[in-house]
Amino acid sequence: MTRVSVRKTYKLYIGGAFPRSESGRTFEAESQNVARASRKDARDAVRAARAAFPVWAGMTAYNRGQILYRLAEMMEARSSDLERACSGRGEVEAAIDRVVWYAGWADKLAQVLGSSNPVAGPYFDFTVPEPMGVVAVLAPGEPPLGGLISRVAPAIVGGNAAVVVASETHPVAAIEFAEALATSDLPAGTVNILTGFRDELAPWLAGHMDVNAIDLTGADGGSTELEQLAAENVKRVVRSSADAQSPWEISAFLELKTVWHPIGL
Protein backbone atom coordinates (compact mmCIF):
# COMPACT_ATOMS: atom_id res chain seq x y z
CA MET A 1 0.00 0.00 0.00
CA THR A 2 1.35 3.37 -0.89
CA ARG A 3 1.20 6.04 1.75
CA VAL A 4 -0.45 9.35 0.93
CA SER A 5 2.00 12.10 1.88
CA VAL A 6 1.13 15.02 4.10
CA ARG A 7 1.59 18.05 1.94
CA LYS A 8 2.85 21.37 3.07
CA THR A 9 0.68 24.46 2.81
CA TYR A 10 2.75 27.43 1.70
CA LYS A 11 1.80 30.35 3.90
CA LEU A 12 3.20 33.73 4.81
CA TYR A 13 5.69 34.31 7.62
CA ILE A 14 4.76 37.29 9.78
CA GLY A 15 5.80 37.98 13.37
CA GLY A 16 7.15 34.48 13.79
CA ALA A 17 3.87 32.84 12.76
CA PHE A 18 2.72 31.30 9.49
CA PRO A 19 -0.62 32.91 8.68
CA ARG A 20 -2.58 32.64 5.49
CA SER A 21 -3.19 35.88 3.68
CA GLU A 22 -5.94 37.86 5.39
CA SER A 23 -7.45 38.17 1.91
CA GLY A 24 -7.83 34.42 1.72
CA ARG A 25 -6.23 34.45 -1.71
CA THR A 26 -3.55 32.21 -3.12
CA PHE A 27 -1.78 32.01 -6.41
CA GLU A 28 -0.11 29.13 -8.18
CA ALA A 29 3.62 29.17 -8.50
CA GLU A 30 6.08 26.33 -8.94
CA SER A 31 3.08 23.99 -9.01
CA GLN A 32 2.06 25.00 -5.50
CA ASN A 33 -0.71 27.10 -4.12
CA VAL A 34 1.12 29.97 -2.48
CA ALA A 35 -0.41 32.63 -0.26
CA ARG A 36 -1.05 35.88 -2.10
CA ALA A 37 -0.32 38.58 0.47
CA SER A 38 -2.45 41.69 0.49
CA ARG A 39 -1.56 45.26 1.44
CA LYS A 40 -2.97 44.51 4.87
CA ASP A 41 -0.58 41.60 5.23
CA ALA A 42 2.21 43.99 4.25
CA ARG A 43 0.99 46.43 6.90
CA ASP A 44 0.94 43.65 9.52
CA ALA A 45 4.42 42.60 8.51
CA VAL A 46 5.74 46.14 8.96
CA ARG A 47 4.07 46.28 12.35
CA ALA A 48 5.70 42.99 13.35
CA ALA A 49 9.06 44.19 12.10
CA ARG A 50 8.77 47.48 13.99
CA ALA A 51 8.01 45.56 17.18
CA ALA A 52 10.90 43.17 16.65
CA PHE A 53 13.43 45.87 15.77
CA PRO A 54 14.33 47.03 19.30
CA VAL A 55 14.55 43.42 20.48
CA TRP A 56 16.90 42.35 17.69
CA ALA A 57 18.90 45.58 17.62
CA GLY A 58 19.13 45.56 21.41
CA MET A 59 20.93 42.20 21.48
CA THR A 60 24.66 42.19 21.70
CA ALA A 61 26.45 41.88 18.39
CA TYR A 62 27.93 38.61 19.61
CA ASN A 63 24.45 37.29 20.23
CA ARG A 64 23.19 38.37 16.81
CA GLY A 65 26.15 36.62 15.22
CA GLN A 66 25.38 33.44 17.11
CA ILE A 67 21.75 33.51 16.08
CA LEU A 68 22.65 34.01 12.43
CA TYR A 69 25.06 31.10 12.71
CA ARG A 70 22.22 29.09 14.20
CA LEU A 71 20.20 30.07 11.13
CA ALA A 72 22.90 28.55 8.95
CA GLU A 73 22.70 25.37 11.05
CA MET A 74 18.94 25.21 10.53
CA MET A 75 19.39 25.73 6.80
CA GLU A 76 21.92 22.94 6.66
CA ALA A 77 19.45 20.67 8.45
CA ARG A 78 16.80 21.51 5.86
CA SER A 79 19.12 21.46 2.89
CA SER A 80 17.18 18.77 1.05
CA ASP A 81 13.95 20.80 1.27
CA LEU A 82 15.83 23.90 0.19
CA GLU A 83 17.50 22.06 -2.70
CA ARG A 84 14.12 21.08 -4.11
CA ALA A 85 13.03 24.71 -3.99
CA CYS A 86 15.97 26.15 -5.93
CA SER A 87 18.56 25.24 -8.51
CA GLY A 88 20.02 22.55 -6.30
CA ARG A 89 22.77 21.61 -3.94
CA GLY A 90 25.26 24.19 -5.16
CA GLU A 91 22.92 27.10 -4.56
CA VAL A 92 21.97 25.86 -1.10
CA GLU A 93 25.55 25.36 -0.02
CA ALA A 94 26.53 28.80 -1.27
CA ALA A 95 23.54 30.33 0.52
CA ILE A 96 24.40 28.61 3.80
CA ASP A 97 28.02 29.67 3.51
CA ARG A 98 26.89 33.24 2.87
CA VAL A 99 24.80 33.25 6.03
CA VAL A 100 27.82 31.99 7.97
CA TRP A 101 29.95 34.71 6.37
CA TYR A 102 27.52 37.45 7.38
CA ALA A 103 27.03 35.93 10.85
CA GLY A 104 30.70 36.55 11.45
CA TRP A 105 30.32 40.22 10.57
CA ALA A 106 27.89 41.08 13.35
CA ASP A 107 30.55 41.91 15.92
CA LYS A 108 33.05 43.42 13.49
CA LEU A 109 30.95 46.05 11.78
CA ALA A 110 31.62 48.82 14.24
CA GLN A 111 35.33 48.19 13.95
CA VAL A 112 35.44 48.19 10.16
CA LEU A 113 32.72 50.72 9.39
CA GLY A 114 33.08 53.03 12.39
CA SER A 115 35.87 55.41 13.22
CA SER A 116 37.37 57.57 15.87
CA ASN A 117 37.82 61.04 14.50
CA PRO A 118 40.83 63.15 15.44
CA VAL A 119 39.11 66.51 15.63
CA ALA A 120 41.12 69.71 16.07
CA GLY A 121 40.10 70.44 19.65
CA PRO A 122 39.75 68.97 23.12
CA TYR A 123 37.02 66.49 22.21
CA PHE A 124 36.77 62.76 21.84
CA ASP A 125 34.81 62.06 18.71
CA PHE A 126 33.72 58.72 17.35
CA THR A 127 31.39 57.34 14.73
CA VAL A 128 29.47 54.10 15.08
CA PRO A 129 27.21 52.31 12.63
CA GLU A 130 23.65 51.72 13.78
CA PRO A 131 20.70 49.90 12.25
CA MET A 132 18.09 51.98 10.44
CA GLY A 133 14.95 50.24 11.65
CA VAL A 134 12.59 48.49 9.30
CA VAL A 135 13.89 47.57 5.88
CA ALA A 136 11.68 46.44 3.01
CA VAL A 137 13.37 44.04 0.62
CA LEU A 138 12.17 43.15 -2.84
CA ALA A 139 14.01 39.89 -3.30
CA PRO A 140 15.55 39.23 -6.73
CA GLY A 141 13.54 36.93 -8.96
CA GLU A 142 16.45 34.55 -9.28
CA PRO A 143 18.27 32.67 -8.01
CA PRO A 144 15.39 31.75 -5.71
CA LEU A 145 17.37 31.08 -2.54
CA GLY A 146 20.71 32.73 -3.30
CA GLY A 147 19.15 36.05 -4.30
CA LEU A 148 17.01 36.13 -1.17
CA ILE A 149 19.89 35.33 1.18
CA SER A 150 22.21 37.82 -0.54
CA ARG A 151 19.80 40.63 0.28
CA VAL A 152 18.28 39.57 3.60
CA ALA A 153 21.47 38.60 5.42
CA PRO A 154 23.24 41.97 5.03
CA ALA A 155 19.99 43.77 5.79
CA ILE A 156 19.55 42.16 9.21
CA VAL A 157 23.05 41.44 10.48
CA GLY A 158 23.48 45.01 11.72
CA GLY A 159 20.22 44.89 13.71
CA ASN A 160 17.50 45.86 11.25
CA ALA A 161 14.19 44.07 10.95
CA ALA A 162 13.06 43.16 7.44
CA VAL A 163 9.90 42.73 5.45
CA VAL A 164 10.71 40.68 2.40
CA VAL A 165 8.68 40.32 -0.74
CA ALA A 166 9.72 36.93 -2.08
CA SER A 167 10.44 36.18 -5.71
CA GLU A 168 7.12 36.13 -7.50
CA THR A 169 8.11 33.29 -9.81
CA HIS A 170 10.05 31.25 -7.23
CA PRO A 171 8.39 31.84 -3.86
CA VAL A 172 8.77 28.34 -2.45
CA ALA A 173 12.42 28.72 -1.47
CA ALA A 174 11.45 31.74 0.60
CA ILE A 175 8.86 29.75 2.54
CA GLU A 176 11.29 26.90 3.12
CA PHE A 177 13.78 29.50 4.32
CA ALA A 178 11.12 30.93 6.65
CA GLU A 179 10.95 27.57 8.35
CA ALA A 180 14.66 27.77 9.00
CA LEU A 181 14.17 31.30 10.35
CA ALA A 182 11.39 30.11 12.63
CA THR A 183 13.66 27.55 14.29
CA SER A 184 16.76 29.72 14.52
CA ASP A 185 16.17 31.80 17.70
CA LEU A 186 15.83 34.90 15.56
CA PRO A 187 13.29 37.04 17.45
CA ALA A 188 9.83 36.75 15.94
CA GLY A 189 9.21 39.53 13.45
CA THR A 190 12.87 40.19 12.68
CA VAL A 191 12.35 38.75 9.21
CA ASN A 192 8.88 38.63 7.70
CA ILE A 193 8.24 37.03 4.36
CA LEU A 194 5.43 37.89 2.02
CA THR A 195 4.65 35.90 -1.06
CA GLY A 196 2.41 37.37 -3.69
CA PHE A 197 2.43 39.82 -6.53
CA ARG A 198 5.22 42.30 -6.30
CA ASP A 199 3.34 45.03 -8.13
CA GLU A 200 0.55 44.76 -5.58
CA LEU A 201 2.80 44.87 -2.52
CA ALA A 202 5.82 46.98 -3.39
CA PRO A 203 4.07 50.39 -3.61
CA TRP A 204 2.56 49.91 -0.13
CA LEU A 205 5.96 49.19 1.29
CA ALA A 206 7.71 51.95 -0.66
CA GLY A 207 5.21 54.51 0.59
CA HIS A 208 4.91 53.17 4.14
CA MET A 209 5.89 55.93 6.55
CA ASP A 210 7.19 53.46 9.12
CA VAL A 211 9.62 51.77 6.75
CA ASN A 212 13.11 53.29 6.88
CA ALA A 213 14.74 51.80 3.81
CA ILE A 214 13.82 49.85 0.74
CA ASP A 215 16.01 47.47 -1.20
CA LEU A 216 14.99 47.58 -4.85
CA THR A 217 17.50 45.02 -6.06
CA GLY A 218 14.63 42.76 -7.06
CA ALA A 219 12.61 45.49 -8.77
CA ASP A 220 13.73 44.73 -12.29
CA GLY A 221 13.84 48.05 -14.05
CA GLY A 222 10.60 49.94 -13.58
CA SER A 223 11.14 51.33 -10.11
CA THR A 224 10.54 55.03 -10.76
CA GLU A 225 7.19 55.03 -9.01
CA LEU A 226 8.60 53.15 -6.03
CA GLU A 227 11.44 55.64 -5.69
CA GLN A 228 8.99 58.50 -5.83
CA LEU A 229 6.96 56.90 -3.07
CA ALA A 230 10.13 56.35 -1.07
CA ALA A 231 10.66 60.12 -1.05
CA GLU A 232 7.59 60.53 1.16
CA ASN A 233 9.66 59.90 4.28
CA VAL A 234 13.14 60.13 2.73
CA LYS A 235 13.67 56.37 2.68
CA ARG A 236 17.10 55.06 1.97
CA VAL A 237 16.90 53.39 -1.43
CA VAL A 238 19.30 50.49 -1.81
CA ARG A 239 20.21 48.78 -5.03
CA SER A 240 22.72 46.02 -5.51
CA SER A 241 23.02 42.66 -7.22
CA ALA A 242 21.62 39.22 -6.45
CA ASP A 243 25.03 37.77 -5.68
CA ALA A 244 26.96 40.56 -4.00
CA GLN A 245 28.77 39.78 -0.79
CA SER A 246 30.73 42.45 1.08
CA PRO A 247 30.62 44.62 4.20
CA TRP A 248 29.41 47.47 2.00
CA GLU A 249 26.25 45.49 1.37
CA ILE A 250 25.72 45.74 5.13
CA SER A 251 26.68 49.38 5.40
CA ALA A 252 24.03 50.29 2.85
CA PHE A 253 21.50 49.34 5.54
CA LEU A 254 23.20 51.22 8.37
CA GLU A 255 23.15 54.75 9.68
CA LEU A 256 26.20 56.38 11.14
CA LYS A 257 26.08 58.16 14.45
CA THR A 258 28.82 60.58 15.41
CA VAL A 259 29.32 61.40 19.08
CA TRP A 260 31.31 64.26 20.57
CA HIS A 261 32.43 64.72 24.15
CA PRO A 262 34.84 67.22 25.63
CA ILE A 263 38.08 66.03 27.17
CA GLY A 264 38.83 67.96 30.33
CA LEU A 265 39.30 67.84 34.06
Binding site: N117, V119, A120, T127, T258, W260, H261, P262
Partner: peptide, 13 residues
Protein backbone atom coordinates in the same frame (compact mmCIF):
# COMPACT_ATOMS: atom_id res chain seq x y z
CA UNK B 1 26.87 66.25 21.19
CA UNK B 2 27.40 65.27 24.80
CA UNK B 3 28.25 68.16 27.13
CA UNK B 4 28.87 70.35 24.11
CA UNK B 5 26.93 71.50 21.05
CA UNK B 6 27.38 72.65 17.46
CA UNK B 7 30.92 71.36 17.00
CA UNK B 8 32.16 70.61 13.51
CA UNK B 9 35.35 69.19 12.14
CA UNK B 10 36.45 67.89 8.73
CA UNK B 11 37.39 64.55 10.26
CA UNK B 12 33.97 64.06 11.85
CA UNK B 13 31.15 62.56 9.76
Amino acid sequence: WANTFNRFDPTSP
